[in-house]
Design a protein around this nucleic acid. Structure first.
Lengths: 304, 304
DNA sequence: GATAGTCACTAAATCGAATTAGTAACAGGA
DNA sequence: TCCTGTTACTAATTCGATTTAGTGACTATC
């Protein structure tokens, strides 16, 4: 850090001009440079420990080699973590870096950050493109949604409620509901019954009371996420409903609290890494190569 | 975004040279520029919507106006959120931006990010400076730690255990323990008994069995964080211990799951915003101005 | 033997702001 | 009148990498 090694230094050390060094290190097409020179340049670069100064490069190129990912209010879950890991890994393999901005998209700090970083691309998990249902992020959730319902159907349930949170999850709530209905149709069961469980234990109790009164045939609750499922499960416990005997509960996106609850919460583990990699490629405008994704799987615990 | 307004454009519009525009907009000291010219420049700048290009500026100045915050493995809690909000707010008030890097400090991606962003400063919550116990971050936790124990003492408890997590929380575990012992001393109670609850329900059960066998006089458990407290509380419930009648449990740093647990978890709400602001000032090498912090307070629920 | 084409390489411009080193114009003092 | 100082500016350099537009030297073609 003390002294910065520049292109010039490498040029001097290898006895060519900075231009040539740049050509060699960037493998610039339509430049014919003999193998001998290439080797000398590479050797000098590694010996001096040359690292291109990304700010200078960004000035020249118009954008930095950084991609910005905004998540909106959404924070939790393995799926987001693995998605981010996928994006980050793929970007780094392609010489880029990821900056994640947790927080609302309307936030002023986002605009300032955008200005400060001049990212090559922005992946917005909260914004409008998410509503399109064509995004890599929501695509990744579809098979997991199907797995969630399939698990309940396998255990003999056909009348199923979908517990949804209130609050600022944006379009995600509608998307998950739509995906669930599609999955229900494919599984040959009636449409799921959406129920808003609210934010507090009291609201959840009210919601569960309503559900059991209006839809007594329902024997299982699928959660929008683990938080929502736990809220519903707690409310059912409060009402003396036996879990899973009378009502089964399954979460989504296996978060930590579900494992230590009583009863512990069955959930769907989602590995969105591949979807993250795909999103990264899309952001850079490249064709993704490896294109297999680890399937999501059921984490079987006591609640189903 | 389509066309970038540069210093040159502003200079042309206001009839002076780019140099003068720069002097005016940056309020460069020891430059005498009459009020009339200043006004013309400012007006042209706002009319054209001039925004200095941060990448160009960063190249000239050697660093960008970004500060990087690394959190280590640590994720949870209001305290971190409020600390970050404080850092971000203060930085933005001083023309800087915050980039948060969640993840281990040994991570290669951190090094690359550092290179890619060239931040003015790095605030490392996970690293060595945290161990010094002089950092703004850990300073912010000390009064909250005291509040946690005081609540238990107020309720008549004197023999108290401190439930600690295993895993990669780094120096934070030792710091919290040391702070707790200091607080216990100040409150006139015997030192707290540390107990590792592990990661799983089974480990926690074992730990609680050991605790009750070896230290039967203990009537309250304080948690390193809410997660740890919940783990301990679940294990105690499993063993048929009445909460809070036989054993009281209190969390730390009020996270969401504690509110919806049965019984719901009393916790300490920590507002670390002021500490974040102070850390931001320290990172920029400025004297902090406003220097009052909101005290932490107890969120009273069923577990105590 | 003139012309075109490739090879191996370099000089110079560029990105946009900050800053150093000036330069005219005028005022005040000796 | 000459000298020094201040005011109000500006030209030119710098940060470091990329890229365009060349330039000699040599080879192949007609």
């Amino acid at each position: 850090m003390a002294v910065r090694i520049t292109l010039k230094d490498v040029a001097r050390a290898s006895g060519v001009s900075p231009t040539t060094v740049s050509f060699v290190l960037n493998n610039t097409p339509r430049q014919t440079i003999p193998e001998g020179t290439r080797r000398r340049v590479h050797q000098a670069a590694t010996e001096l420990g040359y690292l291109p100064h990304s700010i200078a490069r960004a000035l020249r190129e118009g954008t930095s080699r950084v991609v910005l990912l905004t998540t909106g209010r959404w924070r939790g879950g393995q799926s987001l973590d693995s998605f981010i890991a996928g994006v980050s890994g793929e970007l780094r393999a392609r010489g880029h870096n990821l900056v994640v901005h947790y927080g609302e998209q309307s936030d002023e700090s986002l605009a300032e950050l955008l200005e400060a970083v001049s990212p090559r691309a922005v992946i917005d998990l909260a914004g409008a493109d998410l509503g399109q249902e064509g995004s890599d992020w929501t695509d990744g959730l579809a098979p997991a949604t199907a797995a969630q319902l399939r698990h309940l159907v396998d255990r003999g349930h056909t009348a199923i409620a979908l517990a949804l949170p209130s609050g600022d999850f944006g379009a995600l709530v509608e998307i998950r509901l739509a995906q669930s209905q599609r999955a229900a149709h494919a599984l040959g069961i009636p449409p799921v019954t959406p129920v808003m469980v609210g934010q507090s234990r009291a609201e959840a109790r009210e919601a569960m009371r309503w559900l059991r009164h209006e839809h007594p045939q329902i024997t299982a609750v699928a959660g929008f996420d683990d938080d929502t499922a736990l809220l519903a499960m707690g409310a059912l416990s409060d009402a003396g409903v036996a879990i899973p005997a009378t009502m089964a509960v399954i979460g989504f996106d296996d978060a930590r609290p579900g494992a230590i609850w009583t009863p512990s919460l069955t959930s769907v583990h989602i590995d969105a890494e591949a979807y993250g990699r795909r999103a990264a490629c899309a952001a850079l405008g490249v064709e993704p190569e490896d294109w297999t994704s680890d399937p999501s799987y059921i984490v079987l615990r006591e609640s189903t």
